[in-house]
Simulated assay, not measured.
Amino acid sequence: MQLKWFDEGMEAMWTKANRGKYNRDGLRYSSDITDVEWALVEPLIPPAKRGGRRREVDAREVINGLLYVLSTGCRWRAVPKDLPPKSTLFSYFDLWNRDGTLGRIHRELYVKCRGAMAREATAAIIDSQSVKGAEKGGVASTHAGMMRGRRSKARSAISSSIR
């Protein structure tokens, strides 16, 4: 029995050639970044700040630690001892999140991935919750959910029992 996409000339996803490209057997953890992946990410990591102490932690190991937490869903305190300490990982996560490094890495990899598939780097995701929200009130319900709560006048009133 032949599958439909073979008839239409599309390539199968898991061929022997593709399996070799995505094999992660030689890595310490399956979440670790490969040399090819690191070559894409390394230029996007900001250099250490001038002055003060030199950066002692390997940025690649920080990325490996962050990917480990992301892929396993473990708590920060459950990070294995052969990765940087949880405090270091969280500090870099917080710094790179605030300064936009994680966003730049995501955007760059997304654009390259879409380009490799010969597609534009735009996408929209619609899930059943979005559709349900639009059906129930759309913009009006979104607007109400984003507004700051109003303060009660009674809460801000000054009362005194002294005469």
Results as ranks from 00 to 15, higher is better:
Gly26Ile: 04
Leu27His: 14
Leu27Phe: 14
Tyr29Ala: 05
Ser30Thr: 15
Ser31Tyr: 03
Ile33Val: 15
Thr34Cys: 12
Thr34Ala: 07
Asp35Tyr: 01
Asp35Thr: 08
Asp35His: 09
Trp38Ser: 02
Trp38Asp: 03
Ala39Val: 08
Leu40Cys: 06
Val41Ala: 02
Val41Trp: 04
Val41Met: 00
Glu42Ala: 12
Pro43Val: 07
Leu44Lys: 04
Ile45Gly: 04
Pro46Asp: 07
Pro47Asp: 08
Ala48Gly: 14
Lys49Thr: 12
Gly51Gln: 09
Gly51Ala: 10
Gly52Ile: 11
Gly52Thr: 12
Gly52Leu: 12
Arg53Tyr: 08
Arg54Phe: 02
Arg55Leu: 01
Glu56Trp: 02
Glu56Leu: 11
Val57Leu: 06
Asp58Gly: 10
Ala59Tyr: 08
Arg60Leu: 07
Glu61Asn: 13
Ile63Asn: 04
Ile63Thr: 06
Asn64Gln: 09
Asn64Trp: 05
Gly65Met: 06
Leu66His: 05
Leu66Trp: 01
Leu67Thr: 11
Tyr68Asn: 08
Val69Gln: 14
Leu70Trp: 11
Leu70Gly: 09
Ser71Arg: 14
Ser71Ile: 08
Thr72Glu: 02
Cys74Ile: 02
Cys74Ser: 12
Arg75Gly: 11
Arg75Cys: 06
Arg75Phe: 13
Arg77Pro: 00
Ala78His: 13
Lys81Asn: 15
Asp82Gly: 08
Leu83His: 14
Pro84Ser: 08
Pro85His: 14
Lys86Arg: 15
Lys86Pro: 05
Ser87Val: 03
Leu89Asp: 03
Leu89Ala: 02
Leu89Phe: 04
Ser91Cys: 04
Tyr92Met: 00
Asp94Met: 06
Leu95Arg: 03
Asn97Trp: 01
